[in-house]
Design a protein around this nucleic acid. Sequence first.
DNA 1: TGGCAGCTAATGGTCGTACCATTAATTGTA
DNA 2: TACAATTAATGGTACGACCATTAGCTGCCA
Lengths: 262, 262
Amino acid sequence: METTIPSETVFLPVQGGRASEDIALKLEAAILDGRLTPGERLPSEREMQVQFGTGRGVVREAIQVLKQKGLLEVRKGAKGGAYVRRLEVANVSESLALFLKQRPVEKEQLIEFRESMDQTITLLAIARATPAEKTRLLEEAERFAGLLRKPEPDLALAGEVDRQLNIMLARMARSPLFEWVMQALQLGLSSHDYALYENPLYRERAALNWRDTALSIADNEPLRALSYIGRHYGLLRQCVVETQDLPAEPEAPLFTDVDLPS
Amino acid sequence: METTIPSETVFLPVQGGRASEDIALKLEAAILDGRLTPGERLPSEREMQVQFGTGRGVVREAIQVLKQKGLLEVRKGAKGGAYVRRLEVANVSESLALFLKQRPVEKEQLIEFRESMDQTITLLAIARATPAEKTRLLEEAERFAGLLRKPEPDLALAGEVDRQLNIMLARMARSPLFEWVMQALQLGLSSHDYALYENPLYRERAALNWRDTALSIADNEPLRALSYIGRHYGLLRQCVVETQDLPAEPEAPLFTDVDLPS
DNA sequence: TGGCAGCTAATGGTCGTACCATTAATTGTA
DNA sequence: TACAATTAATGGTACGACCATTAGCTGCCA
């Protein structure tokens, strides 16, 4: 970056010289600095093959990588090709979820992280959100409590509402970074942590606690809100230690023929 | 694709039928549920080409995707091939960093977020890191201060050391999630906030402040540490308002020939 | 016997061509 | 005018060939 000539090669020796990586990096750089903008269409593979002076396979591999990163979307047929995409939080979540799948993190660490984020977000939300937003949050929390008070609550729906509550709160904090990280967590942990609501004992207490938190926020009472948040995660911790993980599903045969688009 | 056995296809219609995606999914599933474990070697491309009943290009594209996800590492030459890898926090951070790169955020919001993370991480590090780690951190901070005290400091090196300091601290917190976010910030924002060290006025103060922070951590003095962190970000804010963004670097020509491994 | 040079084979990386499948636009026809 | 058939552009796949790299083997030489 600073030495002009050797800059690119010094930066990334790319382990063994791979043309496809070079191309991927060039395209990625072009997308990130705006030379290629979302919605725009890249040249066709056959054109790029010529423009980069390589074989088509190399171009395809580069495109595959960027597609996997979420930077490109590939359509086939006439007017097909690689289109630049705007990244979504879901891409980050996917990556996080993958990581958590291969390296199960202690639940305690997840809880700890979320609790910390929640505390900060709540303080920011109290300071910055409009009264209307606060009222809306309270309404949703009441609705949530209502859902879980039923004898046979729809747990999937409840989980979704809980997620929405968290995201709404994050948005009220007026900080995109907190919002994004929170969303990524919510999406990436969908399977993980809603054990709290499966247990009827904790269920109602947790729901009421959410409502009280929302109430404290609406009343601009930060300390009270933090207290309720602490109680929420206390419940969650208590619930988690009582719950054990179940073993995984049976294994499928690997290396069988792929279904071809016949 | 969907006519024979509905089971797999119901899960993921995979937009338009792509053999390479099928293979990638199968391999990924095998890795995630333990049929393939880290360090293990997959069959060679030519073997898989036969076992999956497809062309070699398809197999290569699947491998590329998994490699990009961080699940595989490819070595060439004899005894080469695709080896299963353990995911690292850096992989997730990379994804988040990429996302952040595509979405410009206000500097103040970045600072705010980092400050909040730093506070929490510091408290955790004080509580959990070993004395040896704390000593090491202090040594690095001293080295950092030494670097910036020179009349003509190497700013690139200083930035790198600063980055390492932050990551070291995050690791000391014993929380992969905090490590994740912190690394992502370091990766995605490297160019952003090292303006602090370009200004000789702030430079030395910031460096000394880092050292004092490390000292407080080594002494297990959380409140003092938080105080220094507050001062650090105070300096950063002050510095940022005085600095204006420079226009971007000149654009490089896209679609030029790739350097081939001649 | 020991060590080093050179050979060998396995394997990923690249190229090129050919063909198929899909899709939007065009053209032709009722 | 509406609908059907054709066309052309484009991604998806297959196959075969060759190069570059690398670990291990072979064998010569000191």
